[in-house]
Amino acid sequence: MHPGDEADRYLRMRGHTTVHTPLAGVHDHNRIAAAYADADAALVGHEPLSADVLARAPRLRAVVRTGVGYDAIDVPAASRLGITVSNLPGINANAVAEYTLGLLLAAARHLVHSATAVAAGTWPREPGRELRGATLGLLGYGATARAVVPLAQAFGMRVLCTTGVPLEERTDGTVHFVELPQLLAEADYVSVHTALTDRSRGLLGAAAFAAMKPTAVLINTARGGIVDEGALAHAVRTGRIAGAALDVVSQEPLAPDSQLRGVDGIVVHSHLAGQSEQARTAAGLEGAAELDASLAGRPRHAVSAGLLPVNAQRPDTTTAKER
């Protein structure tokens, strides 16, 4: 997001003053708190908004996450402080779905290994695997997983899915809905598309990897905390599973001493799945609209209980911080 872009123009047309404070790289707690100190509302990326950070922002009344996952925000603390927290469901589903297929293809045909080896002066010729006829297991059935389904099927893949979505919402008759043990046992590729919650944290650990095929590959474009990274590194290093392509990790950027480093078969990318030009533009504009609606007491995608009343008192001129 940049000064003068569509989101910025939208907010200014709605009477808000915008301040851009990019927070890239390693997250610094005090720097994050300082960025929100005088803001009435904020469009945020992945930076963590702890209870302490929120408490140090006395004017803050609305936070909009310009994506789907909001696990980095202390939503209960926001609710206690009367701060509305919103996300943008499905805003980057197509971008993440296409990226997921890219990771599948790269893993199946050893594309990263091949390019790296050629750059190093060798000429590898190991055969890859075709996706046609393979089984893809989806953990979750939200907007992104649903967007993955037709792309995978276009390559001739069989699709399994395990989800807590109610039966009446499982409308795709071409998807085989199964319990997690069956999915792990049958899938050639396991792709994660579920939110990080207390129930899903560490869901894919040693027991899950032991249940998977030795030829299986893990794909994660959701949240790093869903995977036990130590168990994953051990499983790939010992041949328990074939490999993993990760767009997300538990600590971002990847820590120098991460157990995922130096493991043949594990490829880590820099959280790019939702970062297409189209998705970024849509997220900025939709996020700006949600922020404006939240300040007016009419959020459309609120995930917190601390909703701002329509008649709440606030300054005539608000400051909307964009990330």
Rank of each mutant, 00 (worst) to 15 (best):
K213R: 14
L285H: 04
T194H: 08
S276R: 15
F209G: 04
L218Y: 05
T221C: 15
A210S: 14
R298C: 07
T317S: 12
Q259F: 04
T319K: 13
A216Q: 08
A255G: 00
L307Q: 14
D228P: 00
I226Y: 01
Q275R: 15
E252A: 10
Q278F: 05
A289R: 15
G243C: 10
S270E: 13
G306R: 06
A187S: 15
G274S: 14
T194D: 08
P315Q: 13
A187V: 08
H301Y: 13
R261V: 02
F209R: 01
T194C: 13
A312L: 02
I219M: 03
Q278T: 13
T215W: 01
N311L: 11
G306V: 08
P309W: 04
S250C: 09
V310P: 04
V268G: 04
D198L: 05
V227H: 01
S294D: 12
L246Y: 03
V249P: 04
R300Q: 15
T194M: 15
A293H: 10
S304R: 12
V217K: 00
V249I: 09
G225P: 10
P315R: 14
A273H: 06
S304C: 06
L260H: 10
L307M: 12
A222N: 05
P256N: 03
D198K: 11
Q313H: 04
D257I: 02
V192S: 07
A231D: 04
A283Y: 10
A211P: 04
A233E: 13
I226G: 06
D316C: 07
R240A: 13
S258H: 06
G306P: 11
A293E: 08
G284L: 09
A207P: 01
G297Y: 02
A305S: 14
V227S: 03
A208G: 06
A222W: 02
V190L: 10
M212N: 07
G205R: 02
V303R: 15
A279W: 11
T194P: 02
P299V: 12
L295G: 11
L254C: 05
A210C: 09
L183K: 05
A187D: 13
H269C: 08
A233R: 07
G224K: 12
